[in-house]
C-alpha cells in the first residue's frame, strides 16, 4: 500500500479592478483560493486511495494560519491529514522562490517518507511551474512534469503516465517510484466536498511545523530572487472599446461582422 503526499498551495486571486502598492497588489483587492492544479492533484490522490492503492493521503502547505480554510477544503475532499509549515522567518520573505520551497517541502517529504508525491503543474498566482521537478531532484525521486493521465495499477513500483506536450501530443512514460508527478488540470473531475466531508474535515489532524521542527535553516528560505517592480502590462494592440451598454455594443459588433462579410 502506498502513502501519498500532496502539496497544496493557497493562491492569491485578484479582483477585476485593483491597485498596485509598491511591489504587490493592495490587500483589499486580493482574495484566496485553493490552487486549481492542486485541486486536481488532491482528487487524483483520493481516487488512488478509493481504488485501494493508497492507504494514506497527507497534504502539505507552506503558508500562514489564514490558509487553514483552504487546507480544510482539501481535507473535506478526502485527504486524511494535513501539515502546515510556517515560521517567523517566512513572514518577511517577499518571494518564496523555487529553491526555498524545495528545501522546506523536501524536509517534509523526508519526514513523511511517501511513495508518491503529487504537486500541481503550477501555482496560479506566481506560476513558477517548477517546484515539483526541483523537489524530485532534491530527494533523488523520479518525476514527470505535466501529467494528464495516471494508470491506476502501479505494478512493480512503476507509474505509467501521460505527459501533455504542446499541440495535442501526449507522451507515454513509465516512471519508477518513489516519484513526484506534477498534475495537469483535466486529469480527473475534482469533487465538491460533501457536507459530511466538510464536517469530518474539522476533526482531521492539521499539524503545524516551524523550520526548526523540520531542521531547515532559516537562511535557506530567504531565496535568491527579489521582486523590484510590479506594474500593469502595456497593451500590444490599439483596442477599440464599444461602450453604451450591452445592446449597443452588440449592435456595433454585428455591424463589424457584416462589414467584414463574415456574417449573414
Amino acid at each position: 500500500m502506498m502513502k501519498i503526499l500532496v502539496t497544496v498551495k493557497e493562491v492569491a486571486t485578484v479582483e477585476d479592478e485593483f491597485e498596485i502598492e509598491g511591489t504587490s497588489i493592495a490587500d483589499q483587492y486580493l482574495g484566496s483560493d485553493l490552487n486549481e492544479w492542486d485541486d486536481y492533484a488532491v482528487e487524483e490522490a483520493v481516487q488512488l486511495q478509493e481504488a485501494g492503492l493508497a492507504d494514506e493521503v497527507v497534504t502539505v502547505t507552506i503558508g500562514p494560519e489564514d490558509c487553514e480554510q483552504t487546507i480544510r477544503q482539501a481535507l473535506a475532499k478526502g485527504a486524511d491529514r494535513a501539515i502546515r509549515v510556517w515560521d517567523d522567518a517566512l513572514e518577511d520573505v517577499d518571494v518564496l522562490d523555487v529553491g526555498a520551497k524545495t528545501d522546506i517541502l523536501g524536509a517534509v517529504v523526508e519526514a513523511e517518507d511517501p511513495d508518491l508525491v503529487l504537486t500541481g503543474v503550477q501555482s496560479g498566482d506566481d506560476s513558477w511551474g517548477a517546484t515539483g521537478v526541483a523537489l524530485a531532484e532534491d530527494l533523488g525521486f523520479e518525476w514527470a512534469a505535466v501529467v494528464n493521465h495516471l494508470e491506476h495499477d502501479l505494478e512493480d513500483g512503476v507509474a505509467s503516465v501521460r505527459r501533455e506536450l504542446e499541440g495535442g501530443v501526449e507522451e507515454l512514460t513509465d516512471v519508477g517510484l518513489p516519484a513526484v508527478l506534477t498534475i495537469q488540470t483535466g486529469i480527473n473531475e475534482p469533487r465538491y466536498a460533501s457536507l459530511r466531508g466538510i464536517r469530518q474535515a474539522q476533526r482531521k489532524p492539521l499539524d503545524v511545523q516551524g523550520l526548526d521542527d523540520l531542521g531547515v535553516d532559516a537562511a535557506a528560505v530567504e531565496g535568491a530572487v527579489t521582486l523590484t517592480d510590479m506594474y500593469e502590462p502595456e497593451s500590444e494592440s490599439d483596442v477599440t472599446v464599444w461602450e453604451g451598454g450591452a445592446e449597443d455594443a452588440a449592435g456595433q459588433l454585428a455591424e463589424l461582422l457584416r462589414e467584414k462579410g463574415v456574417a449573414p
Binding site: D97, V98, G99, T102, V121, W128, G129, A130, T131, G132, V133, A134, A136, E137, D138, W143, A144, A145, V146, R163, T182, G223, A224, V225
Partner: peptide
Amino acid sequence: LDYAPAVANELDLPIV
C-alpha cells in the same frame, strides 16, 4: 519544465 528545475537544483542555482 521537465528538466530545467532539476538542473538548477542539481547545480544549486536559482531558477526563474
